[in-house]
Amino acid sequence: MTGPTESDETDSGPASAAESERADPRPDGGTTESATAEKWSRSGTALSTAVGRPLLVGVVTVVVAFLTVPVIVTFVSSFAGSAAGVVPRGFVTFEHWQQVLGFGTHGVQANAIPGLAFSLAIATGGMLLNVVIGVPVAYALARYDFYARDWVNTLAILPLVPGLILGIAFVQTYPNHGRSALGLLAGYCLLKSPYMVLTVQSSFQSMELVRLEESARSLGASWPRTVLTIIIPHAKRGIVAGCIITWTLAAAEFNFTYMVASGSPDPFAIFLYRNISNATHLQSAAAVSVYFTIVVAAILVLQLLGNRGFSTAQR
């Protein structure tokens, strides 16, 4: 519905512009010029607005639907009694949620809570570690032109290797400590650090880093104070975005977790995997739902934190 209406509205713009040109013709050859202008503006409108915009809206709608429908179906199914066939039946039951959350009488190997808590704790640890390490690295990369800067830049992005490979490397290199919570923490931090460095770096680059710093210092703020009270707050949005990405990706990381996790408690990704292969569909659906609920809540909280104090809210 939106596509055609919007193109109708924008169509009137160039048409009225062409009219106003005709109303004020130049004495020599003015008519030819306005005719040309009309032709040009018509063809420009036709391509970008009439076709491009509806096409883009259509593609985005299909993609978003394709990605979100399974999530919604999973969430809804977790309250259904039977999931045989396409349409789930037997609403509303909390039986599966009870089992997954550990209140059930039978079924899955264990409840999801310890694994979930374990995974979230490690993901949070990895995220905090990334803030402490990634933000200064991003600052240095954005602010200074130093020897081997390009190498540091490359090294900061290098851990974008598949978690499986890093997992094997960990277990082989540290046979005694690789399979531990510490191994998971280090791995999550390393695996996801490029996302933190890249988002924060682009945040630093999009502000006038040097000028802001020099303004603050000329006004009497020492360098540490400038960084803490001016630079970091200006980069808050990038840091929050980096936190969201590193945290969610770490909490959901399977490959690396599968290679490195020692098994007590099972991290959430492993727990999900075992349930999907062993238990009924609906139980795992409930488990997945728990995970998505937590991710959505965390993103909302982080974004609220990030938006507070930003000018866009007041515009």
């Binding site: 000028r211 802001l212 020099e214 303004s215 210092r217 000329s218 001016i230 200006h234 808050k236 930003f310």
Partner: peptide
């Protein structure tokens, strides 16, 4: 620089976007 008591004004303004106008001036 922070001990020189020098006022700087740039072409690009470089105001502190995280603060109000009054907080900028009072910084």
């Amino acid at each position: 620089p922070e001990e020189r008591n020098v006022g700087l004004v740039f072409q690009s303004y470089a105001l502190f976007d995280t603060m109000t106008v009054r907080e900028n001036v009072a910084f």
